[in-house]
C-alpha cells in the first residue's frame, strides 16, 4: 500500500471557499480499491460482462444453428473457430457459453433487484414501526421461510409454464426474506440512535426520517448482502436448469449447459469444463467483491 502525500492537497483546499469533506462512502470506496482480490474480481467480472454483451460479434457461429461440417459433438478446434468445441447438436459451445452468461447474469441481477426492492421496503417498515406490526410482519417472514422453496418454485413452473420472467420473480420472491430480516435488524439498531431523536425533535416527517436518516445508514450491509445474493441466485437458477426447470431451448444458461455437459462427461468433457469454469469464476468474483465490500463498509468488523 502506498501512502499518498496529502499535505499539498490540504493546503490548496484551505484557500478555497469550503473544504470538501470525505464522506463514509468515499472512505469505503478507497478501502475497496485497496483490496486486491476485490479489484481483480471486478476486472474479471467486467470482462465476462463485456464478452456476454459482445457475444454475437466475437464468433462467426450462431448460438442456435448447428455447424453441419463438424462433429456432433466436436472437440475444441481453433481452425474452425470452435474454441470451446461444439455440443451434441453441433452448436458452437463458445457462443452458447456467452449466451448462457447473458441469461445467468441477468437472472442474478434482476432477481436480486426484486429481492432488494421487496426486502428493503418490508424490513425498513417492520423495523421502523416496531411493536405489534413488526411482530406480525416478521412472523409472516418466518412462515414463508419454513415453506420448502424448491417445491414452491416447481409448483410455480408447473402452474404457469416455463417462463424466464417467472424465474426472476420466483427467485426474487424467495430471496427477499433474508434481505427483509437484515434490513429490519439494522433499522432497529439505527432507530435508537440519538440523531433519529434529534430529527423527531426538529419535526422531520416519518417518511423523511426513513429516507434521509435510516436508509442511508442501513445501506452498507444491504449492499454487501446484495453482492452475496447474486451468486446465490445464479447458482439456484443453475440448479433449477439442471433439474430441467430453467430456460427454454434454444436459449441457454450455464446451468443448462452444465447439465447437458454432465451427461456426456466421459465422451465429451469440454461440454462440462468450459461452462463450469465460467460459472465458478463468476461465483468466485462475486463472493470476493462481497467480502471486499464488507471490509470496506464496516472496517471495525474485520
Amino acid at each position: 500500500m502506498k501512502i499518498k502525500p496529502i499535505i499539498p492537497d490540504r493546503l490548496e483546499s484551505i484557500s478555497e471557499d469550503a473544504v470538501k469533506g470525505r464522506s463514509l462512502w468515499h472512505d469505503a470506496r478507497r478501502r475497496l480499491f485497496q483490496n486486491k482480490a476485490a479489484v481483480i474480481s471486478m476486472v474479471i467480472l467486467g470482462i465476462i460482462v463485456v464478452l456476454a454483451i459482445l457475444a454475437p460479434y466475437l464468433s462467426p457461429w450462431p448460438y442456435d444453428d448447428p455447424d453441419w461440417g463438424y462433429d456432433f459433438p466436436g472437440p475444441p478446434n481453433a481452425e474452425l473457430k470452435h474454441w470451446f468445441g461444439t455440443d451434441g447438436n453441433g452448436r458452437d459451445l463458445f457462443v452458447r457459453t456467452l449466451y448462457g452468461a447473458r441469461i445467468s447474469l441477468m437472472v442474478g441481477i434482476l432477481a436480486t433487484s426484486v429481492s432488494l426492492l421487496i426486502g428493503v421496503t418490508y424490513g425498513a417498515t417492520a423495523g421502523f414501526i416496531g411493536g405489534r406490526v413488526d411482530n406480525i410482519m416478521m412472523r409472516i417472514v418466518d412462515i414463508l421461510y419454513s415453506l420448502p422453496f424448491m417445491f414452491f418454485v416447481i409448483l410455480l413452473m408447473v402452474f404457469f409454464g416455463r417462463n424466464i420472467f417467472l424465474i426472476f420473480i420466483a427467485l426474487g420472491a424467495v430471496e427477499w426474506l433474508t434481505m427483509a430480516r437484515i434490513v429490519r435488524g439494522q433499522t432497529l439498531s439505527v432507530k435508537k440512535k440519538e440523531f433519529i431523536e434529534a430529527a423527531h425533535a426538529t419535526g422531520v416527517s416519518t417518511r423523511k426520517i426513513i429516507t434521509r436518516h435510516i436508509i442511508p445508514n442501513v445501506l452498507g450491509p444491504v449492499i454487501v448482502y446484495m453482492t452475496l445474493t447474486i451468486p446465490m441466485v445464479i447458482l439456484t437458477e443453475s440448479f433449477l436448469s439442471f433439474l430441467g426447470l430453467g430456460v427454454q431451448e434454444p436459449l441457454t444458461s450455464w446451468g443448462v449447459l452444465i447439465s447437458e455437459g454432465a451427461k456426456q462427461m466421459e465422451s465429451a468433457p469440454w461440454l462440462l469444463i468450459f461452462p463450469a469454469i465460467f460459472l465458478a469464476i463468476t461465483l468466485f468474483c462475486f463472493n470476493f467483491i462481497g467480502d471486499g465490500l464488507r471490509d470496506a463498509l464496516d472496517p471495525k468488523d474485520r
Binding site: S23, E194, F195, A198, A199, R212, H213, P216, N217
Partner: peptide
C-alpha cells in the same frame, strides 16, 4: 423547543455533511 444531546457524535447522522 429544541434539544442538545449527551453523545455529540451519535446525535449527528454520519452520512450527512454538517
Amino acid at each position: 423547543l429544541q434539544i442538545i444531546f449527551q453523545d455529540p457524535l451519535a446525535s449527528l447522522n454520519p452520512r450527512m455533511t454538517i
